[in-house]
Design a protein around this nucleic acid. Structure first.
Length: 881
RNA sequence: GGGCGAAUAGCUCAGCUGGUAGAGCACUUGCCUUACACGCAAGGGGUCACAGGUUCGAGCCCUGUUUCGCCCACCA
């Protein structure tokens, strides 16, 4: 790259195309050899449902920057990639596509349908891979896994069989969450409860051999057809006369016992509850206690079935209307009240979930939850930010059995076979050929597949080869940190911890970092379907992936959501990339053929050099500290601020004269050496955030070997710090700032140079004298006079910096009134602060109780303010004359 | 019904161990100063939601209130 080739504006498209394959070919993404404890992240496998969305981009950016940072510190790193088959989600999208062709999965048949899904999977897997490469994800592709690949399928069967034999997996008829649209059972976690304004219907059931009618309240009248009893509280006196009696179910004339149960709340509704064991979890349990036989009144699509009498064939919604109307006709509808309650919706298709009696497979969770729970207090697992630990623990406390069977075709088949001969149930890892009991070869495998999370919860070790005892498993389990969103704490995080303890005997990761969600200005999650999000790939094309990464990170407070994200926000990162590019463009022509030589450079460095190196070292320390505590946004901001506000705004400006000077001089050596050092540090610190641009610039930097991707992370010792130089440059900044302020307030044309007078004494006067050239340069000075006896010119703008006074003699140029107003305002500000300070120092409590250094600082401040005040007073007096 | 989080400049948010407030964007003014107008310089703008309390001192700690947001929840 030669200077003339550097365009004025940074164009990422070409640069970002260049480096990824190089990194892969160099093998950087594979863990390096070494005995040290590796740094490992196992990727939360994206669903192969579609392409990556914004959540992924953010999630991957964080993981990649942690991995890249750790890689640079020299530890062996592994970021293990993979994808998830995402049972229901994927099956749904493929079915939807079939529907567009007017077909259902039944038209294809199971085998052909599953083939179809595999084709889909291949397409989207490829797209996801491309997106990840475009983003710069430094994953080890040689270890990539898929939740339905051979090894993971084997792990799933192994786990199922093991848990079954331990008695932790069982099959049972239970009330589960049924999605009438997806036609499958769901776990509790796959149901979203939505507060809904519903109605509470009070209806009457006649009582046999009695004139009295029994009123019951329900939110779902259509389930009455499945009623088999009415329950009241045993101590509820109102119903004492009805004990032992029989209620008659309207429409169907079913005789139902009036039963007594403690779980009935006499205060709710009428104090009498209709019992529908096949369609309500509470009623199911009550039914069991009282030996009632459940009656299902709906089919798998929530259409009323043959048990629904005249209502057969109606949807549940229609049935509700018709039943209410019919009850009203018969005078059995007492009242309808508004009632707000939570209604369960299918997480995948938003259909209202039906509590439904069904034969399913379950995992007994209590025993598995125990070690996952204690892991927190034992310090085996830390969640960042800490507040999520409570959420995690509370869920484990109330854990319920996990329904794992799904009536889908896409997923892991349940490894259970029934013998056609003797009906023996066979649970085996390897597909059996004959019945071990009777030898019959007619074996029929369970039709259902497993919940997608039943493979995901094994991800931390199944991806490393488990159940084989592989070298990878020994070396890379457990991982260092899990990075994901808090929305899957229950689905995934907690279950992985359980599986880790159960099958590996330890927690699968030491830390969990939960980041926020990317939201738009209305607070909505970014999603393509809402139309509030561009395709990340398109955004990367437009702005560059470095810019997108940097923007997301800069905008993200630790563990909190990013609010108000929009495409234009990416300008933040793009402008920064451009700034860095141009800073480099400034220095690059002067580095041609330059050979850094520390021994020659050190002795001739000036304050600016020492200062910027000192600041670079401090930036390395703060960036690293923030990365360690997952304050990733702060870490990015540290480098951002350093680069822009210190390196570009000050150092490069100060360095220009020496940079343009004859390359043979010692000055030139010092400044070039410093520039190379600082850029080297900045590029390394920035690499985890902006991998492509930093790699590109790194290779144009003289005296560097290899790639920044594997360059050594900047040292975090205090070695490079130079407090004296920092103090002197701080003074320079104040002086220059003050001069600039005066010029601006006085409306002096930027191009016009003006004489500068500084009345200063003591040590700092010497420093200011030494900084003469810089002050003239940055303060646009025509001349500079510094000393204790500098006289204020008749007409001048003035300012006070520390103990010193700055004058810009501008006879004929300044408007006295303007200057007077300005000084007056400044004076008032100083007076206010001065009075505050005085009040504090007159307070004995403050003097007696505050820490000594605080008091000292206050005294110093008071003195400075006092002298400033005096000077301002004098200057004001002069102007007023 | 329970829990969690937030409330700071017009917007999005920092403010990590209490010492009277910062950034980015937006806004105003002036600059195409040969690295960058994706830029430079200067500037305006905040009773830190409200009410109490602790403290010499509170945006920060405690209590309560209000308003938003999120999560959890089988009271029909």
């Amino acid at each position: 790259m030669s200077p003339s080739e550097l365009p004025k504006n940074y164009d990422p498209t070409e640069v970002e195309r260049r480096w990824y394959d190089h990194w892969v070919n160099q093998g950087y993404f594979r863990p390096r050899d070494g005995d040290g404890a590796p740094f490992v992240i196992t990727i939360p496998p994206p669903n192969v449902t579609g392409s990556l969305h914004f959540g992924h981009v953010f999630d991957h950016t964080i993981q990649d920057l942690l991995i890249r940072w750790q890689r640079m510190t020299g530890v062996p790193t592994l970021w293990l990639p993979g994808t998830d088959h995402a049972g229901i989600a994927t099956q749904n999208v493929v079915e939807k596509r079939l529907a567009e062709q007017g077909k259902t999965r039944f038209d294809l048949g199971r085998e052909a349908f599953v083939d179809e899904v595999w084709k889909w999977k291949d397409i989207y897997h490829k797209r996801i891979t491309e997106q990840m490469k475009r983003l710069g994800d430094s994953v080890d592709w040689s270890r990539e896994r898929f939740t339905m690949d051979e090894g993971l399928s084997r792990a799933v069967r192994e786990v199922f069989v093991t848990l079954y034999r331990k008695g932790l997996i069982y099959r049972g008829n239970r009330i589960i969450n049924w999605c009438p649209r997806c036609h499958t059972a769901l776990s509790d976690e796959e149901v979203n409860h939505v507060e809904t304004d519903g109605k509470l219907y009070t209806i009457q059931y006649p009582v046999k051999d009695s004139k009295r009618k029994l009123s019951v309240a329900t939110t779902r009248p259509e389930t009455m057809l499945g009623d088999v009893a009415v329950a009241v509280h045993p101590k509820d006196k109102r119903y004492a006369p009805l004990h032992g009696k029989t209620a008659i179910l309207p429409f169907l004339r079913r005789e139902m016992p009036i039963i007594l149960d403690d779980s009935v709340d006499p205060k709710f509704g009428t104090g009498a509850v209709k019992i529908t064991p096949a369609h309500d979890p509470n009623d199911f349990e009550m039914g069991q206690r009282h030996g009632l036989t459940p009656i299902k009144v709906m089919d798998e699509s929530a259409v009323m079935n043959e048990n629904a009498g005249d209502f057969r064939g109606l949807t549940r919604e229609d049935a509700r209307q018709r039943i209410v109307a019919a009850l009203e006709d018969r005078g059995l509808l007492v009242k309808v009240e508004p009632h707000r309650h939570a209604v369960g919706h299918c997480e995948r298709c938003d259909t209202i979930v039906e509590p439904y009696l069904s034969l399913q497979w379950f995992v007994k969770m209590k025993p598995l939850a125990e070690p996952a729970y204690t892991a927190i207090e034992k310090g085996e697992l830390a969640i960042v930010p800490r507040r999520w630990e409570k959420v995690y623990l509370r869920w484990l406390e109330g854990i319920r059995d996990w329904c794992i069977s799904r009536q889908l075709w896409w997923g892991h088949r349940i490894p259970v076979w029934t013998c056609g001969g003797c009906s023996e149930q066979i649970v085996e890892v390897e597909t059996p050929t004959t019945c071990p009991k009777c030898g019959n070869a007619a074996l029929k495998q369970d039709e259902d597949v497993l919940d997608t999370w039943f493979s995901s919860w094994l991800w931390p070790f199944s991806t490393l080869g488990w159940p084989e005892k592989t070298a990878d498993l020994a070396r890379f389990y457990p991982s260092s940190v899990l990075v994901t969103g808090p929305d899957i704490i229950f689905f995934w995080v907690a279950r992985m911890v359980m599986a880790g303890f159960e099958f590996m005997g330890s927690c699968p990761f030491k830390q969990v970092y939960l980041h926020g969600i990317v939201r738009d200005a209305q607070g909505r999650k970014l999603s393509k379907s809402l139309g509030n999000s561009s395709d990340p790939l398109e955004l990367m094309d437009r702005y560059g992936s470095d810019s997108l990464r940097m923007t997301l990170v800069l905008l993200s407070p630790q563990g909190n959501d990013i609010h108000g994200f929009s495409d234009e926000k990416v300008d933040l990162g793009r402008h920064f990339a451009n700034k860095l590019w141009n800073a480099f463009r400034l220095v690059q022509p002067h580095l041609d053929g330059f050979v850094p030589d520390e021994a020659k450079a050190r002795p001739v460095m000036n304050d600016a050099d020492l200062w910027i190196l000192s600041r670079a070292a401090a930036t390395a320390r703060s960036t690293t500290r923030n990365l360690k505590t997952y304050r990733i946004g702060d870490a990015a901001k540290d480098v951002y601020d350093f680069t822009w506000r210190e390196l570009c705004d000050w150092y490069l400006e100060l360095a220009k004269p020496r940079l343009y000077a004859d390359p043979g001089t010692p000055d030139a050596m010092a400044v070039r050496y410093t520039v190379v050092q600082v850029f080297s540090t900045v590029l390394r610190l920035l690499h985890p955030f902006m991998p492509f641009l930093t790699e590109e610039l790194w290779h144009a930097l003289p005296g560097v070997d290899g790639d920044v991707c594997v360059a050594e992370w900047p040292t975090t010792t205090r070695a490079g710090s130079h407090p004296a130089a920092e103090a002197r440059i701080a003074l320079l900044k104040e002086v220059v700032g003050s001069i600039r302020n005066l010029r601006s307030e006085m409306n002096i044309a930027p191009a016009r140079k003006a004489p500068i007078l500084i009345r200063a004494e003591g040590h700092e006067a010497d420093i200011i004298r030494e900084q003469r050239e810089w002050i003239l340069l940055l303060g646009k000075g025509e001349s500079l006079e510094v000393g204790p006896h500098v006289q204020k010119p008749e007409i001048a703008a003035s300012a006070v910096v520390r103990q010193h006074e700055i004058f810009l003699p501008l006879a004929g140029l300044i408007d006295v009134d303007v200057e007077l107003k300005r000084l007056q305002k400044e004076y008032e500000r100083v007076i206010r602060e001065f009075d505050n300070s005085r009040r504090k120092l007159q307070n004995d409590d403050f003097l007696g109780k505050a820490k000594k250094d605080v008091v000292d600082r206050e005294r110093e401040k008071f003195e400075t303010l006092g002298s400033t005040k005096e000077k301002l007073e004098k200057n004001l007096e002069v102007l007023k004359r």
